[in-house]
Design a protein around this nucleic acid. Structure first.
Lengths: 340, 340
DNA sequence: TGCCACGAGGTTAGCGATAACCTTAAAGCT
DNA sequence: AGCTTTAAGGTTATCGCTAACCTCGTGGCA
């Protein structure tokens, strides 16, 4: 069996081979304390020959200083979240930290389970997705945590020690302005699972109230129990066009749903943007566009991860950090809305 | 400071509160041993009131049974790999395992560092991306590992305890057949970093030799030092068309590069598939297609992760597993090649 | 009655490291 | 000469938990 392959080499064995104490080996390998160059050589040589690999579990337990960072995101395979993860890793890995990844699927009870599991490893920090309803269980766990916790994707609320993300309200307003400037008046919102994704919900509400200020009623097609995927965007767009053929602008919850919607409109022979303008959210679909470049709001995803990780490092060193970092977002003009 | 928030509750404190020994608490919480129902209640009550959270580091160290699984993939934000990760998580999480994620960026020396860092946590298993050149350092670490190791994305070679992935040679042949069946004769391959991505290299070689069997010389445009991204696909396609305007079929390393290439062809006014047929690899671009549905080879990414995780579980339980699992792949006809 | 099995829980000894202090000899200082 | 420093390394006591064995009382059974 693979797990019997070889008994692991411990500090004690390296110490015996080098003719010193365990403590000396520990000091040499961590590069602390006062050890002569000659002894260092001997120790390193012995460690190398034995193929010694430190046991981080023991080290962490003993020193009570962890280099594990726990990250919980709704979905790993959604590029929106995985790019944030890349940013986090880019900062933490070179500093010797390991990331634990959890996938909550926007489910508060899975999130709570994950928080519990991750805290049981006594991580140096916790990165959570902000845009979710948190269960009471999760809140209780968070209250008892003894590490910094950071909220990702959200800087409108400041529930934890630090937040990094865009203002979702700004995002909703940006789309409203863009549509209104182009003379659109019959505007619809297409989304899903707004009961779970509270960030999306705030974008939706901001759009709605911005339009209301211009005396326009937002028409919405929101389906709580379908995934926030292209297939749902397509389905809901079809519903929308059946019920409200007069629509002239649609804002989708995200780019993925927007692409689903666009594929329906294209198939139905409805010209975009001549008849209907379309905007998404996230800037994920621009890079790979062949013909249809979606107008969308670009969010600096990797940078959000980087800023969150940097704040975490600062907190673990006891340095002060601000309450939040607001990601600047930008409406990127594609060819699914009219140019200015 | 956040890290001082509250001293953590230990088994001993729960034991004191419940009026039993630490061992009894440990047994109750792990649901092992013979403890009366009445005592169990008392212990659980005490644990709950104190907000006890087990320390998994200590538990793992003591029992020498780990529930950490280490996964190293080239890129987290590439959906191709992150969907595999989702599959892995879907199997492992419900069984109480945590995944450590590392990002190698196709760099053998980063990979070796990651393997070292992950093995230092004494994981229950190691999942590696198969299609990479492995450094001598990494090989040495793997030889001394004491956990099962599994290779992802690759089932042509069987270097570790188990492999899960498609046959990349089959993939290359599938494209060759598809192109030849459609009467294409001036065929090009566009790729990048084939020195790093050995799986892609095998697809390329299989395509080349299949065409050679039909007395056709594959024209290739491969750039070792640019990323395997859309922008590179676009750039290389432009080069290709300048040097070989007679081309009538292009196979791209992956879907992302193919979409970059398509966007160039579209902008240059070259009709696809009338003048040039295009095929990609991975099936990632079909779901979100608005107008251009790329002909590609679909790979069951999530399933690869699931099979790998299942094999790992089986190995940790000492059960036998086969050498590999071959993912079935399929050429999916889009509108960038002619129908059969 | 005597013996064994079993239920219910406790004791001891680590797991593999590190923190915090301690020792010792040689060198430096007055 | 006598005392303090310092370099170089060692000792001891945990970290928080679990494996493996031990104890003790009760009840069953021949």
């Amino acid at each position: 069996m693979a797990s019997e392959r070889s008994k692991t080499v411990t500090l004690a064995e390296v110490a015996a081979k080098a003719g010193v104490s365990k403590m000396t080996v520990s000091k040499v390998l961590r590069e602390v304390g006062n050890i002569s160059e000659e002894t260092r050589q001997r120790v390193r040589q012995a460690a190398h020959e034995l193929g010694y690999l430190p046991n981080s579990l023991a080290g962490t337990l003993s020193s009570r200083r962890s280099r594990i960072v726990a990250v919980i995101i709704p979905s790993i395979s959604d590029i929106v979240y995985s790019e944030v993860l890349s940013g986090v890793n880019a900062i933490l890995r070179p500093r010797g930290f390991q990331t634990f990844i959890g996938e909550s699927q926007f489910d508060p009870s899975i999130e709570a389970d994950l928080i519990r599991a991750m805290l049981s490893f006594r991580p140096a920090g916790l990165l959570l997705n902000g845009g979710m309803a948190r269960s009471a269980d999760a809140e209780a766990l968070l209250a008892r945590r003894n590490c910094p916790a950071i909220q990702l994707w959200d800087c409108d609320r400041h529930a934890l020690d630090f937040s990094a993300g865009p203002s979702h309200e700004d995002a909703g307003r940006l789309v409203a302005t863009h549509f209104l400037d182009r003379g659109l008046r019959r505007i619809a919102y297409v989304g899903a699972e707004l009961d779970k994704d509270l960030n999306a919900r705030r974008r939706y509400l901001a759009l709605k109230s911005s339009l209301a200020a211009a005396h326009i009623d937002l028409i919405n097609v929101i389906c709580e129990d379908r995934p926030r995927q292209a297939v749902t965007g397509r389905f809901l767009t079809e519903q929308l066009m059946r019920m409200h053929p007069e629509i002239d602008g649609i804002h989708f919850l995200n780019d993925t749903m927007a692409l689903g919607g666009l594929s329906y409109l294209h198939q139905a022979g409805i010209p975009v943007p001549e008849r209907i303008s379309v905007a998404g959210f996230n800037g994920t679909s621009l890079a790979n566009a062949v013909r249809t470049r979606l107008t969308t709001i670009d969010v600096p995803r990797t940078e959000i991860g980087e800023k969150a990780a940097q704040a975490l490092l600062r907190m673990t060193e006891g340095e002060p950090v601000p309450d939040f970092w607001q990601a600047r977002i930008e409406l990127v003009q594609g060819n699914t809305t009219h140019p200015a």
